[in-house]
Design a protein around this nucleic acid. Structure first.
Lengths: 190, 190
DNA sequence: CGAAAATACGAGCGACCGCTCGTAAAAGTC
DNA sequence: GACTTTTACGAGCGGTCGCTCGTATTTTCG
């Protein structure tokens, strides 16, 4: 019951790897499950031994990416000094790992952009917690709105950042940080 | 050669009307041309008498929407006083008609979000011209980047704005303006 | 009126997609 | 080695989609 399951888990990982690449190339809808199977070097039948349907593949992949992202963000969010950091520094702390993650995982944004919200919710909650820690007096609705907007801004610009070649990419990351500090730095009751 | 073409143009308009509604409901990819034809009250064959393929429908619709948008924005962009207006006022001048347009035309965002860039380019160019007028000393690359980012921010938040019920919508529009003024108000060489 | 052009119809073709199922080889268990 | 379980295969089913085409109707024009 051990050695077999090891092979099975390996297969699952191969499927998710293939799906990530395929989603990045063709998007979620236009990626066929047969293509994922082919890229993973297996038959459609084998793929469907591990996943009940296409959506389950995307869900599992989202979960895996969210775990990786959480790990990459651990230092940015866990630090208690986060409360007193200057805003630009805090933004960099959050944005830099995020950019690194998306550059390393092109196709992750597809799981955000073309499906429900899978990756968004987890990140938004953490940003909300962060904002609440920095501005405890802010009404809860405002916190939720601001964090949602901030995450949407990041998501909107991330596509261009990942696609850009390196000299331009840095400039775009800079713009993203500028947008976030500009947005979050303005008092909410404008 | 006159009366016939009149009917033909009417049919084309009916197709575009139907396509707009259908795109808004199901998105571009998942909208079938047969569904567009059915909603327009005609057969698939008739639809394809006026458009060579599905993409051409989306293109024509994008063009029509862009024209309407340009008209709605005329007052915001043509005014020469635009150069000396305070930034928040200028943002409102641009954003408010844009919100109105998207609320009146749900589905317009689909033509942006799920296809190349059709509606974006036109708007981005005009925003770039506006920024250039306000900051003539800014390098051209910076202007282009800033306007692209600004348009992407608007596009990112517009979906939520259109979807939100009225009390929340106003708050989200306010957030959008806050984000834009915060972003554009910060000096570019941060 | 009669010919030509424009408009209209809708069954259905070919291609693709998500997914199934009958079958069979490996691997684990006793 | 016999039996069960897990893994693997791939042809193909049922369905949808973009689009075509043969045919019929309506309008324009001389």
């Amino acid at each position: 019951m051990v050695k077999r399951q090891a092979r099975g888990r390996q297969r699952i990982a191969e499927i998710l790897d293939a799906a990530l690449v395929q989603f990045a190339e063709t998007g979620y809808d236009k990626t066929s499950t047969n293509a994922i199977a082919a890229r993973a070097g297996m038959s459609p039948g084998s793929l469907y031994q591990y996943f009940p349907n296409k959506e389950a593949i995307a869900d599992a992949l989202s979960q895996r990416l969210l775990d990786e992202l959480r790990e990459a963000h651990a230092t940015a969010f866990d630090d208690t000094a986060v409360t007193e950091l200057p805003l630009p520094d805090l933004v960099s702390r959050v944005v830099d790992p995020l950019v690194f993650f998306h550059v390393a995982n092109p196709g992750a944004k597809v799981l955000i952009g073309e499906r429900g919200q899978p990756l968004h919710t987890g990140v938004t909650d953490r940003v909300a917690a962060l904002l609440r820690a920095r501005s405890p007096e802010l009404p809860d609705d405002d916190v939720r709105r601001s964090s949602t907007v901030a995450v949407q801004i990041v998501a909107a610009l991330m596509g261009g950042i990942v696609a850009a070649p390196e000299p331009e990419r840095a400039a775009l990351v800079h713009e993203l940080k500028r947008a976030l500090t500009g947005y979050l730095g303005t008092p909410a009751g404008l």
